[in-house]
Amino acid sequence: MARTTSDGLDRNGSPPQTDGHVIDVAHTTRSLQRESPDNPEQQLPLHSKWINESCQAKLSSRKEIAFAELAIRILRIAGWQTGRFIRLTLTLASLSGVPTASNCDATLSSDLVKNGSVSSPGYPDPYPPGSHCRYDFQGRGKERVQVVFNDFLLHQPPESHRDCEGVDALVAYVHIEGRMEKIDSFCGDAMPKPLMSNGARLLLEFRGQHSSSHARGFKATYSFTENFGVLGGGGRQLSEWPCGFAFNSSEATSGYVTSPNFPGLYPRDTECHYFFHGAGTQRVRLRFHYFDVEGVQPCEASSASDYVEFSNFMARDRKYSRYCGQLKEFDIESDRKFFRLTFRSNDRLDGTGFNATYYFLDEEESSPAKPRPTSSARGNAVCWALVLLSIFSLLC
C-alpha cells in the first residue's frame, strides 16, 4: 500500500517513512528570478519553469533510504533560503504493494527531527509473518530518547512464555560501555510503560514471526529530550548540570518531583540532582507517595544498588542514610532552608523510581512527619526473628 505525504513550506514535516522499496519524487516549482546586471529593476529567469517533473528510484538498502531522506531535506532547505516556493510530493511504496520484513528498518536521527512516531509494518493492519524490523534512534550530546506507546497488540499463543522468548515481541536495547544491552522485552497485549535511553542511543527490535488477523502490532511516539522525562511542578532545569533541577519557594511553595521517565523504568547509569531553596527559616519536606529503586540496604556500591540520597549540604550528609528498595509512603525533612535530593542508577537493573510532593514549611507550620520507611522485606525479617525467639524461649 502506498503512503504519500505532501510538504510545501512545512519545516516541521517528518522524513518520509521508509516502509517500501520505491521512492517517487515529483517537483513543482515556480520560476526563480534574479536581477539583470545591466538593469537592477529588470528580473531575469534564473531557470525555466519545472512543473510536474518526476523521477523514480529503487531503494535497496538503509543507506540509500537515508541518503534519499537527506537529499530531500537539502532541497527543502534550499527552497526556504531562496524565499520562493518549492513543493515536493513524496510517494513511498513497496514493490509488492504490502510491507515486507526486509524493508522496515529505520534510522531516526535527531539531526532531522526531534519527535515523531514509529509503528510495526502495515499498522494498523496486521503485520506480515516473518517481520523483523530495527528502529535505531540516534540523538546528540545530552539528549535522551523517550518512547511512549500508544497501541500494542502482538500475536501470542495460548500458552504463556517467560520473558517473551519464542513469541512475537518488541525488544529494547541501550548502549552501555560500547555494547548494545537488552533492557526489556514486550509481548502480548499489555501496554508497555514509557522507555528512556541511558544516553543518546536506543534500539528497538521488532520480531513478528507469526502474526494473526487480530495482531495489529504497535504504534509509539518518540522524542529526543534533554529534560530526562522528569516531571517537576514548579521547578526549572539547570543547564550547568547534566541532570539538575532547582525548586525555589519564591516561585512555588509546593509541587511534585519524579525520577527520570516516571512512571516508566528509569534509565540506567544516570545521576540527577534536585535542589530545593527556601527562604529565611523555611524548611523542606518531601512526601514520597511511591518508591521503587532497585537495591538492597545499605544501598552502597558494594551491593550494586541504585539509590536516593538526601543532604542539607551540597556534599554528602551522614545524618541521612541512602534509600533503595520498595518502600511504603514516607516523609523526610531538611534541617534548614536548603535541601538536596540525588538519584543515582547503575548500569545493571531497573526500577520504576519515585513520585514525591515537596513543601516549603515556615517554622510555625511544622507538624509531625510520617514515619521513616520500612520495606516489606525488612518487616518480614523482624516478624520471623520474633517467632524464632518465642520458640527458643519455650524450648528452654
Rank of each mutant, 00 (worst) to 15 (best):
D111S: 08
Q209W: 03
S120I: 04
S393K: 09
P371R: 01
T342Q: 10
F218L: 01
T100C: 08
P192N: 07
V98R: 14
T374C: 08
I77H: 09
V387H: 06
G188L: 01
K219F: 06
K370D: 07
F218Q: 03
R30P: 00
G234H: 06
I183K: 05
P16L: 05
E294F: 06
F275Y: 15
P242G: 04
L95F: 12
C187V: 01
G13Q: 10
R11V: 12
R3E: 12
W384L: 13
Y274V: 08
A172D: 06
V98Q: 13
K370N: 09
K49H: 10
D163G: 03
T281A: 14
K49C: 10
S120W: 01
S211H: 05
V25T: 07
E226D: 11
G141S: 13
A381W: 01
D317E: 08
A101P: 05
I86L: 15
G139I: 00
G8D: 11
S249R: 02
G255F: 05
P45K: 04
L46G: 04
L170H: 03
A377K: 11
H27P: 01
Y127G: 03
S259N: 00
V147N: 06
C133R: 04
M1E: 07
S376I: 12
R34K: 12
S302E: 15
S110V: 01
L195E: 03
E165T: 10
G280T: 09
S131N: 04
D317S: 09
Q56G: 11
D362A: 07
S36K: 01
G208E: 02
A71R: 09
P192D: 06
Q33S: 09
Y307N: 11
L59S: 06
F262D: 06
S96W: 02
M314I: 13
T253W: 02
